[in-house]
Amino acid sequence: MADKTNRSISIAAAPERVMDVIADYDAYPQWVAAAKSVEVLSVGANGRAEQVRFVLDAGMVKDTYVLEFDWAADGRSVRWELVSGEIQKAQSGSYTLVGEPDGSTTVTYELTVDLNIPMIGLFKRKAEKAITDTALKELKKRVEG
């Protein structure tokens, strides 16, 4: 798999509030522009989603895929892997939250996507950067709004 794209943002809220927004998949279509529908398929013993199906429409990129989530016991990070997808053959990612002394949270988003269609590395990295930047900005707006 290719190199990970790694982006961070500061959000004016406690880590618990940020993680609650990240974990509320049912609400994603309300604030994630590309998420046309999101369905929690299974829930783990911790009460958080274990498998989730996403229908994504980001203009030229459309996909239906299922991710499996692994939630850290401390509530400060979540990792995921692709279970199935139409145009993706692999996806791994994570959100890591660090509480700051001023009460804000630094959120780091790592993402690696491998598609079934050929894509020049430069374009792939630009697409991953756009995805992570947009996701972090939308998350910030949702939490702080």
Rank of each mutant, 00 (worst) to 15 (best):
G75A: 08
T5L: 08
Y109D: 05
K4I: 00
S104F: 13
G47M: 04
G145D: 00
M19P: 11
S84Y: 12
P29F: 00
D70T: 15
T112Y: 08
K124I: 14
Y95E: 05
A72T: 08
I22W: 07
E86T: 15
V143G: 05
D63Y: 03
G121L: 13
L136M: 08
V18G: 11
Q51S: 08
S8Q: 09
A49G: 14
V18L: 05
Q91L: 09
V98E: 14
S104T: 14
E138T: 11
L67Q: 08
P101Y: 01
A45V: 06
D102I: 15
S104C: 10
R7N: 06
K140I: 02
M19N: 12
Y28L: 03
S84G: 14
I131P: 03
W80Y: 14
A27P: 11
V61E: 11
V107T: 11
E128I: 10
Q30T: 09
V21R: 01
T96R: 15
S10F: 05
P15S: 11
Q51M: 04
G145F: 02
R7G: 01
A33G: 10
S94G: 09
L56E: 15
E68D: 10
A14K: 06
I9R: 01
V43W: 00
E68S: 15
E110T: 15
K141I: 04
V78Y: 14
Y65T: 09
I9N: 03
K141S: 02
G93S: 11
T112P: 00
A23S: 09
A130S: 10
K137E: 05
K4H: 00
A27W: 10
D57Y: 01
D57V: 00
T112S: 09
Y25M: 04
A45T: 07
Q51W: 05
A33H: 05
N6V: 09
E86C: 13
E110Q: 15
L115R: 12
S37H: 08
E128F: 11
V113Q: 12
I120Q: 01
G99E: 04
I120Y: 03
T134C: 07
I9L: 06
L139N: 02
D133N: 07
A35Y: 07
L41E: 06
G145Y: 06
I117E: 02
L56A: 09
E39R: 03
Y25G: 06
W71Y: 13
I120N: 02
Q51R: 14
P15W: 03
K62Y: 12
D20W: 04
R125T: 13
N6M: 05
P101W: 02
S8M: 04
G75K: 14
E39D: 09
D20Q: 07
V40C: 01
W31P: 12
A13W: 03
S37M: 01
V113F: 11
N46C: 08
G59C: 06
G99N: 09
I120W: 04
K129A: 08
L115Q: 07
E138Y: 10
D63L: 00
I117Y: 14
K141C: 02
Y65D: 12
Y109T: 03
R7K: 13
V143I: 09
K126H: 12
D102K: 00
S84D: 15
G99H: 11
G85C: 06
L122Q: 07
L136A: 10
P15N: 13
T108R: 15
P15Q: 09
A72F: 10
I117Q: 10
P15L: 02
L67S: 12
D24V: 09
